[in-house]
Design a protein around this nucleic acid. Structure first.
Lengths: 203, 203, 203, 203
DNA sequence: CATGAATGAGTCTTCATTCAT
DNA sequence: TATGAATGAAGACTCATTCAT
């Protein structure tokens, strides 16, 4: 029991250090030696816990995926019965996402920036994560259409992907801005408005 | 003059080959030898036309940027005077983008996928390209607000970025789908609707 | 005493496991972890019984050497007084060798195949073992010459080495063949004939 | 033409250096850096001419095999019609082998000592080379039996292998002795006598 | 006594870049 | 101008060995 925990703790130390290094130098420029150096351990030690460098990245991405899944699963897609309920639900999901990526900007940095063009498996894993998010978003839209507070003719597949891209763009932009607090809140107001009401001036 | 042209032609040959290779293998996995091999020239030759591998990538990204700028500049942001005019203008921009990235899916592949986490300068250049697009989008929004066919309280900065992200997500998704013709047209219908009218059922 | 025995028993367990691993993977490809793993003990434990990996190999080779010495010492070189007595003595030595290496083909595998090019000390030890065998063989030849049933002009030094090489080639070939029973017996008939009578047709 | 030759020359330089290093340190202990260092070239250069370290060894072994084949093919197995002719033919083959391995003791060193337990492919290649030699030897024996100057009941398969092992033992021993000239000639006298006449005193 | 986590020396291998021809 | 042979920095990875528990 103690043993298992220690191993897990060490694994997480390494993952945390890797996140540090990857987020700053990028996957390719980062060396195992950098990661081990940051922890002041021998670099051979990393290989006791992970098969290789790529394995570390995958573990990191899995963490992100799990975090995302957790945020998403907090809400249930068919809870909302009116536009107003849905609007507040959107707000909660947004807040969750900002918490997930915002509390540690390194996560987004790695997830959005430093992690493409490495390997088919990585590309696919990231794409799957985005797809997961979009798929869940679609459940909300389908619910809304069924309940009648969203347009009958909505192309929920496309719309869910579009919405998902806006949300993540918001997160990403907030990461890029230092003062992400205020900027983030502007995103969290604008995106739901855009989604629901569009930009046209109400007639 | 003749000589200048020849040099330019050779440069473009190399860029085209590089686009081929980068889009398939990614920047890091691609070797100068691959590029030269495809053209059946000595790989040393590449260094007569480009300073180094990174220089080739930058030239490629500059081409994309120029193409994007061209598409954008075809329209003028203050032309539209009504919602309907704007709606059709959006359509034309969308069509232009799909042409730009759609006629050669390698471009999007490199621009969206294979090109991150290489180098600060590259990351910045791509970000700038996206920003350029978003900035122009904002001009349209500002015009719409001024003319009164878009909401007065629109956060044009945020909204422009959100819209831009949707558009590029559409392009990206269309690239990922084989039958991009039909899928693309669904995007081109859905995104403007979303932007302008939102998803709510009209009261 | 009890303790001594236990230590000895453990040592032999390790040697047996090492023989297993070395005979299959070869010395270099074999890892201490493999050996310990086969015994389901911690690999650190191996270092309580042997100084290092090379030490294990040396202990193994010493075992082979001791076995060989035992087989050889069963006979006495000056026992034979006639060609026929010598012929049967050769047969007994041959049988002993086949028993030694045949009962456990791993021994020959390691001794003949997997154990060269490791280290000067190892090479020398193996050479010494072969020399021991050849030297004893020579005693038989010298006896035969003295007793008059072998040629006076025999170069006993060279001949002993030549004979020794034939014998070991026979063992080795028998190991390589699955059905070593029958093949071995052909060797055990052919080699003594060759040694004593040569290949020429009797005039 | 010039190009081809240069490449071949460089390849042989590297092989020669590799032979040097392998024969002294053994395959495993030898580093590519050692080989390149001896030639005072960058170690990367080795990889322009050989796929990897193992590839160098294989090329070396192929050279030995070719040399051996050349020596063997100089004679034809069915040329001899009498014991005396065969005896002199044996002498010529022996001389050829001593030349092959004797002129450069490094070759035998690598071939006999430093090259086992590396890799299945290597083991097999060496075994095949020995088999080739033994197989050809058998052709001579079969010829001798047919022509009647060798015993009718000779087990040519076994005998050929036994003879082959004696010959190579002689080469090997000669390599190990400094004064290989004189020692070698003792081998070259003793082995044919043993083969043909055996050791028994002529009745 | 036994263990196995930690270590880091040591090696192969790749590939962008240079430069003599 | 074009070439491609040569280079060597750089880095991932292995595994024998040690030692605190």
């Amino acid at each position: 029991m103690k043993k298992e925990e220690k191993i897990q703790a060490r694994k997480e130390e390494i993952l945390d250090a890797a996140l540090d290094i990857f987020s700053v130098k990028g996957y390719h420029a980062a060396g195992i030696a950098d990661i081990a150096g940051k922890l002041e351990i021998g670099h051979g030690t990393c290989y006791r816990y992970f098969k290789n460098k790529l394995d570390i990245l995958h573990a990191l991405l899995d963490q992100v995926q799990a975090g995302l899944a957790e945020v998403i699963s907090r809400q249930s897609p068919d809870k909302s019965n009116s536009l107003e309920e849905y609007r507040s639900q959107i707000g909660e999901i947004g807040t969750g996402l900002f918490e997930l990526f915002g509390k540690d900007s390194r996560v987004g940095q790695v997830f959005f920036f430093e992690t493409q063009g490495i390997d088919e498996t990585v590309t696919v894993k990231i794409r799957k994560t985005h797809e997961l998010s979009a798929r869940v978003t679609e459940l909300y839209l389908v619910n809304g259409v069924k309940k009648g507070f969203l347009r009958k003719n909505l192309d929920t597949d496309i719309a869910s992907k579009a919405i998902h891209s806006m949300m993540f763009e918001g997160i990403l932009q907030s990461i890029l801005h230092k003062s992400n607090e205020e900027y983030a809140s502007r995103w969290m107001k604008t995106v739901p408005d855009l989604m629901l009401d569009g930009m046209r001036s109400s007639s």
